[in-house]
Amino acid sequence: MSGPALSNRSALELEDIDFSYATRLNGINGALYKDFSLRIEQGSIVTIMGASGVGKSTLGRIMAGIVLPQKGIVRRSPDFTGPSDLVYVDQHPMNGVFPWQTVLENVRYPLEKLKWEGRERRDRICYLMTLFRLSPLSDVYPAQLSGGELQRLALSRCLSWKPKLVILDEPFSALDGKVKAEITSALHELALKDRMTLVLITHNVSDALALGMRCIIIAKRPVRVMSDLDFHLGFPREENTPDYDAMQQALINGIRDGLV
């Protein structure tokens, strides 16, 4: 098994969370989450999987503190010192960048505001621009980028200041296989190097298998954890190997259990 060593300390804990939307758009059985608990270990790469509309993004937003649960506790690691240590990256990469800033300005701006100075800042920008292959696009505005380029920009911006926990909502949904593989390997490198905890939210089996060390399958409703699987796979992930196929089958079974 590769990847950052598991530590027993939690990056984030949800305890007995209740959450429902006030509008009751989803019918009368209102409660989306009821007594929901989850623990994310520091340095782990966790995938949260579930069917569309099950409440994955809501879970991500509860974890990030963007929406507050009606009941229960969201506990962050005491290592998290400022709001910038826990980042939720939106499904739409355009929401994660400032479209009025060029690619380079987008990567530089958060570092400036978080008081990264001089050489450290320059090196970080240079490293990220190279890792996500954005250097030739420095002076371009986000609106002129392709989908894959925009996703790379959104990620490099949100990861620029080395946040301790990053929640990525469907980061690969609009991307083809090649771009996905590039972004996956960049994310893997960053997670190792910066000791980041990553939470990936997805509905897609191959996305779930691309990076995660642990996969949590959730289903409705109220949302429960259907399966909690550990992946013992190296990186990069080789498809069509016996280990990969076994994990894929386990995931598919987990999802099927969630549907019935």
Partner: peptide, 18 residues
């Protein structure tokens, strides 16, 4: 204004003026 970008402003600890 896009609420997701205002979320970024909070993440980066921007003051009201910024």
């Amino acid at each position: 204004a896009n609420q997701r970008r205002l979320y970024q402003a909070r993440l980066l600890n921007l003051n009201s003026w910024q």
